[in-house]
Simulated assay, not measured.
Amino acid sequence: MSGDTLERVGLSTQVHSLGAAHDLGVQLYYPHRLTPLGAEATLERFTLTAVAAALGPVTAGLLTYSTGIRIDTAPYETAYQCNVPLRGSLRTSVGEQRVQATRSRAAVYTPDVDTAISGWEHPCVMLAVKLDRGMVERRLAQEAGPDWELRFDPALDVASGAAKAWITSVRELIARVQRLSRIDPGLATFLAERCVDGFVASTLRLDAPAVHSRSANARIVAQALEAITYSSGAPLSLGSIAEYVGVSGRSVQAAFREIEGRSPMQAQRSDRLQRVHQDLLRAADGTRVHTIAQRHGFSHMGRFSAMYQRTFGELPSQTLDAVALSG
């Protein structure tokens, strides 16, 4: 994998003026109006710290303002947004509705209303996630059916369940991207799609998936494995697999539980481990394990090495060393 196939998606920076903070916010998120709150003296020490992952259709960032501020925007139009204060709290409005967001209560902003974020009289660390509208609404229609109607509550409980797991995964995503100077575009797309899948699962209020017969579930699994096996590059998200099969993501998961006794993501991980193994066996001199692992969607080398060792009985470096010795 040559260097020109990789792209930079991580950002970690500090700015020290309102103008620079405004420009950075526009770059990462949306046009907005930024208004300082509190004493004029605090502006002399003003700082915005941003640590973000910019993955095309998804931007996830940790934003820390050193003083109270207010942000006003027009309707987002092209995106959904979810904000979670990880420290402190904030008052915000989604159109005419008011939300007091906290660590356990996120604010969800839809594309069709004005928004205002305020109440940062004290410093606050906010997790801000922007998600492409088209991608979110395709997943919504896929999970809820073609006649779905917008049912977003402006407040989302993130203290438990799928929403809590999604917030944890977004924070891990930001940290992961910071470790990588550059990332394969296919892997970046997979991570963005998985983030959208998690958001949709967290916010939808749906009944249980339709119950399919065992033969129907077997067909679902066969078609999903077809997509997994014959796709190239980075792994597919659950939403992409479900879209290929033509059912909801929950139906794919239920079918795998019945037929395979594992999740579709576990099946895909097994397939990708086999691909890494075959690439290591064919590797040329000078090939790095990290390069091959990332090509197939593994970015955390510690976890990858442990999974590889459990599967093949040796570390990936040992496979590579054995190939070099035999050559």
Rank of each mutant, 00 (worst) to 15 (best):
T92P: 04
A101R: 02
T102V: 09
Q81S: 03
V84F: 07
W120C: 01
L86I: 03
P85Q: 08
S89E: 03
S93Q: 13
P111C: 06
R91H: 13
T78I: 08
V94Q: 06
G95H: 08
A79R: 08
S93W: 11
V108Q: 00
Y80C: 06
T92K: 03
W120K: 01
E96M: 07
Q97H: 06
W120E: 05
E96L: 03
W120M: 11
R105C: 07
A116W: 01
V99R: 00
T92S: 07
V94T: 09
L86Y: 13
T92Q: 08
Y109T: 05
P85V: 06
T102G: 15
Q97S: 12
S118C: 06
R103A: 15
T115F: 04
A79P: 12
R103H: 15
Y109C: 04
A79G: 15
L86E: 10
D114Q: 13
Q100L: 14
Y109S: 05
S93K: 11
R91P: 01
T115I: 07
S118Y: 07
A101H: 00
Y80N: 04
S118V: 08
P85E: 09
Y80M: 09
S104M: 13
E77T: 14
N83T: 10
G119E: 04
Q100Y: 14
I117N: 02
R105V: 05
S104T: 10
Q100V: 07
A116I: 05
P85C: 09
A101D: 02
T102S: 15
S118K: 05
G88K: 06
S89I: 02
Q97Y: 03
D114M: 10
P111L: 04
A116C: 14
S118H: 05
